[in-house]
Design a protein around this nucleic acid. Structure first.
Length: 497
RNA sequence: GUCCCCAUCGUCUAGUCAGGUCCAGGACACCGGCCUUUCACGCCGGCAACACCGGUUCAAAUCCGGUUGGGGACGCCA
């Protein structure tokens, strides 16, 4: 059996978007599953729109996702000679011809056909020019494109799609498509096939938006006497309005980089993406890499387009809720050391990192992450909602401040009293702190909840959080005492307003 | 307009090929309850779908035909 070879061929005209990432992921999975090779090829023949930044963005995106490639990146422009040679071969073998029609003429004809609700395809004007006519035109310096000569007889092209089944298209429904521009540069349809033949690609897994390309490309494979690879067209990802998601109309929300910036766990994003149009046939939805590779098969790719459930300006969900749910799941179930590594990377970026977190404070650091992670959805939350554990410049949110602190002016005295008791404790831990808190509440004849919730607000800035006495021991006596003594400033701030 | 693809809860989907075990299962979201000093986690429960019409059959989400709806492509872009 020949080795499976698949490829991901992005055009570097923007960032890597989640549709592209999903395509890459499925190809990567198939390669892993079959012991094949995953090839990265940058299709940069569109010189005007290709940029180095975009190439780097794609490489970074794939690397971040953990979709390592086995070969490449190859650059399509480096194989221009192959593409031109192939075009010449097709002309020589009678599978293609030069067309001297001008763009203007063609446009005019198309407009007319549109108006008349007629067929808008190329009418074949140059299909049967004699060698003499061609020579004469070329001598006069009239520019020409190269068109593929689609068989004119009755019949059809067909192939067996791994997900869609047999796909067939009549020759008469395909126009003589252009394969080389008038400036001599070959087009995608041809380059792509030539590259796939050279790279010995065995399976082409791509979106259904390529289906009409596929029938034309099958014709190209046959004309170039190359074996036709296996095709698998995956469903598209649409937005709530059922439109194809694109960077142009949806912006950053479809960029892999966005999820990285938001604090997603790379594999969690992959896990979410693979479920858009694929499922294992069981109830399992969370997969380790190994499990997913094991479970994956082309046959279980769905035929139905899926909707990326993202509501713009939804205050509660910044992206598809299921994506967030999957990310949260990983966040609270992954080994804490792995979370620690991700938090480290992020903390370094936002200036919250302390080398002691890998030295004498390592145990504390990981235990604290473990304590607070249940409520979080992304890695970034550790520096936002979880900021009070790692820095002094955390903000106290207004809602809990109103509800738990300002509502009880006596806390101005009570909390410093509590701080004093904490300071005098021989040992400061969960048990002794709780005892001290409850004792004070009893003496003051108030509900412990008033002290507890007031403390929570002041110490963490948050309305919600882990058990209060776990928080106290995580924060440590010094910070607790100092912050509690500072309660007055919040009342002063309030008075000023 | 032409060609191609598709059609199950709000969303992701199982079930369709081999019709009965499906008055349709799971997940997310939502709602309620338990737990909790708070919030979350967790657990328990609830809401919620076979696009429509015909046909085949003892029996159809499943097979066939049509209708409707949605998507994609129709570039000297990739």
């Amino acid at each position: 059996m020949t080795e499976v070879r698949v490829r991901f061929p992005p055009s570097p005209t923007g960032y890597l978007h989640i549709g592209g990432a999903r395509t890459a992921l499925l190809n990567w999975l198939f390669a892993k599953k079959t012991g094949g090779r995953f090839i990265l090829r940058i299709e940069d023949t569109d010189a005007e729109r290709s940029t180095p930044e975009s190439i780097q963005g794609i490489l970074d995106g794939l690397t971040w996702l953990g979709l390592e490639w086995d070969e490449g990146p190859y650059f399509q422009t480096e194989f221009a000679a192959d593409h031109i040679r192939a075009a010449e071969r097709l002309i020589e073998s009678g599978h293609a011809y030069r067309c001297f029609c001008t763009k203007e003429d063609l446009d005019k004809k198309k407009e007319k056909a549109m108006a008349a609700k007629d067929d808008i395809r190329y009418d074949g004007t140059c299909r049967n020019l004699s060698p003499e006519e061609i020579a004469a035109m070329q001598e006069k310096g009239i520019p020409s494109v190269v068109r593929f000569k689609v068989p004119q007889q009755e019949g059809s092209v067909a192939y067996e799609d791994k997900v869609l089944g047999r796909i067939e298209r009549q020759f008469s429904d395909i126009e003589d498509f252009v394969i080389v521009r008038s400036n001599g540069k070959p087009l995608y349809l041809l380059c792509n096939v030539v590259d796939d033949i050279r790279d010995r690609i065995t399976h082409i897994i791509r979106g259904q938006d390529h289906m009409s390309n596929t029938t034309r490309q099958v014709l190209l494979y046959e004309a170039l006497t190359a074996p036709v690879p296996v095709f698998a067209h995956m469903p598209l990802t649409l937005d709530l309005q059922k439109r194809k998601i694109s960077k142009r109309s949806h912006g950053e929300i479809v960029a892999v980089q966005f999820y990285r910036d938001q604090g997603f766990i790379p594999w969690a994003l992959c896990n979410f993406l693979v479920l858009l149009g694929w499922n294992p046939g069981t109830d399992q939805e969370i997969f380790s890499r190994e499990e997913l590779i094991e479970a994956f098969s082309l046959e279980r790719i769905s035929k139905v387009n899926s909707v990326f459930n993202y509501r713009k300006d939804d205050p509660k969900f910044f992206t598809d809720p299921k994506a967030i749910a999957i990310n949260s799941h990983y966040l609270r179930t992954m080994p804490i050391a792995e979370i620690g590594a991700l938090v480290k990377e992020y903390f370094k970026k936002v200036g919250l990192w302390d080398d002691a977190y890998e030295g004498e404070k390592k145990e504390w650091f990981l235990a604290t992450l473990d304590l607070i992670r249940d409520r979080f959805h992304t890695i970034n939350d550790f520096a936002a909602a979880g900021r009070a554990y790692f820095a002094e410049d955390y903000t106290v949110e207004d809602k809990p401040l109103q509800k738990n602190v300002l509502k009880y002016p006596d806390l101005k005295q009570w909390l410093p009293m509590l701080a004093a008791r904490f300071a005098e404790l021989p040992v400061f831990d969960r048990e002794t702190a709780e005892q001290a808190t409850r004792d004070l509440a009893a003496e003051l004849a108030i509900k412990p909840g008033i002290l507890i919730n007031g403390m929570r607000t002041l110490l963490t800035g948050q309305l919600a959080g882990p058990g209060m006495f776990d928080v106290l021991s995580a924060l440590g006596r010094d910070r607790v005492v100092a912050r509690l003594r500072n309660v007055e400033r919040y009342f002063i701030m309030k008075d000023k307003q």
